[in-house]
Design a protein around this nucleic acid. Structure first.
Lengths: 126, 126
DNA sequence: TTGACATATTCCTATATGAGAATGTAATGT
DNA sequence: ACATTACATTCTCATATAGGAATATGTCAA
């Protein structure tokens, strides 16, 4: 069997980086395709195709307004992904730090208002 | 350009359902490949290949023990996915219910200890 | 050494991309 | 009616699977 279709579920649809970009962009509010094209920096047909995939799995909603189409992110469709990844939360909390150290880190965070916080988990050695 | 490799990042690796199954199974603790094969119900070579993908993106760790290899989920590698999906949280909270109704739902949840809670977001009309 | 067991890798093939180019379609203005 | 604007769709192609079958590698036991 080949790889599952990108339209088979939200997990597959979101695997493509440009589609994640589009979703992040469209969560702020409705935008027409031309705006997305300008914001993402991809040609119009490619954007339309990505929007087609997102539409098919329900990750975006469309509304027609004259000759424009207004897209917006359907955040609710992302929720299952958040919940699945969330089932691992209690495990990664115990991965790198001991309980005591995490408590200290928490206090730091509370007092220092968390500036320059790294966005992602640091890469691990291969 | 073709589709990005499954090994290009955690998003792509996790798009495959069997790999998600494997990750959920291996988060409990170390298991050897034979156990995974039995638990997942897929032939051994396929499981080995899925494990190879998960290894390459750092979603699992391996340890050799005699002729067995003990795999376990590296939950920390799932965290970036949880965080990305989490950026949409405040939007889906306002999708279906008004503030008042959500408050009521919250009280119900607190008093009733949440039995028979649905696992996923219900499907939407096509 | 030889054999058995546990995993990994290679080869094969049908299928599905994502981007680029070209074209189709619908709505609006004049 | 016609040109223009705003999107969507179709076609082509290089590339990457996922699974099945077969085979290779590595480790222990006798």
């Amino acid at each position: 069997m080949a790889r599952a279709a990108t339209t088979s579920d939200a997990f597959n649809a979101v695997a493509e980086p440009r589609r994640r970009q589009i979703l992040s962009y469209l969560v702020i509010g409705e935008r027409q395709v031309g705006e997305i094209v300008a914001a993402i920096g991809l040609d119009q047909p490619s954007v339309s195709k990505h929007l087609g995939v997102l539409r098919e799995v329900g990750l975006v909603h469309v509304r027609r307004n004259g000759r424009h189409r207004l897209y917006r992110t359907n955040a609710a469709a992302i929720r299952p992904l958040h919940e699945w990844t969330g089932t691992f939360e209690r495990y990664w909390q115990h991965t790198l730090l001991g309980v005591k150290q995490r408590a200290e880190a928490q206090m730091q965070k509370n007092s220092q208002s968390n500036r320059n916080a790294p966005r992602n988990t640091p890469k691990e050695k291969p």
